[in-house]
Amino acid sequence: MSALLAGLDCTGETWSVALVRGSECLAECGGLNARAHLRWLFPALVDCASRSGVRLADLESVAVTSGPGSFTGLRLGIVTARTMAQVLGCPVRPVDTLEALAWNVPESPRVVAALDARRGEVFAACFQTGTGGCLRLTEDRAFTPEELAGALESWGGGVLVGSGAVRYSPVLEKVPGVRILPPVFAQIRASAVALAGQRQAPLNPLDLVPTYLRSAEVQLHGVRP
């Protein structure tokens, strides 16, 4: 039987957990309420296990979005995944948040995943998606909406997905060849995190580090490190 993986994401306004075996999602659960992430994340996973008749003790690994994203949500997901792995004696598989988001657009030569990073910025990267998964075309970085519009122009447009794309659509949709997907596609699915995780090398839970893309000192100095 294929390996059982858990997927976790709470790096944005939404949270999602899933159990995946091979290419199938056994159970998935989520919600839209950033204040309820802590309350529901782990209990929902327990619920997924009981509804799909599997034991969390049988997990082969835990896949989790490792950033970029909301700092607090990012840490919550990572600590939960690390602790699960510590108890179960299994590895973790970090998945880039923007890659997990790009999975929402199944077959496209150019998917631009863009998260609202607050402070007038978006975290974005460009991918090519196909049946085999997701191929990265650019590295994650922070853009102002205007900078991203410029980059989109040089890439020749693409399908835009994510909270950053939705928020800054007035600026971004002016770029020729750009299509912006509606908010429902901006919600990251934990099943995609687990499926993307299958392709990531397993890590010792203590070696998992978050991708913040921003210094902790932004809190003191305002925009940009």
């Binding site: 802590l38 994340l41 327990v46 919550l76 939960t80 699960m84 108890v87």
Partner: peptide
């Protein structure tokens, strides 16, 4: 809150799995 939450996340995961 962001600090308290981390201890609680670890604790509920431990308690739930154990």
């Amino acid at each position: 809150v962001g600090a308290v939450l981390l201890g609680v996340a670890a604790a509920k995961t431990l308690a739930g799995l154990l």
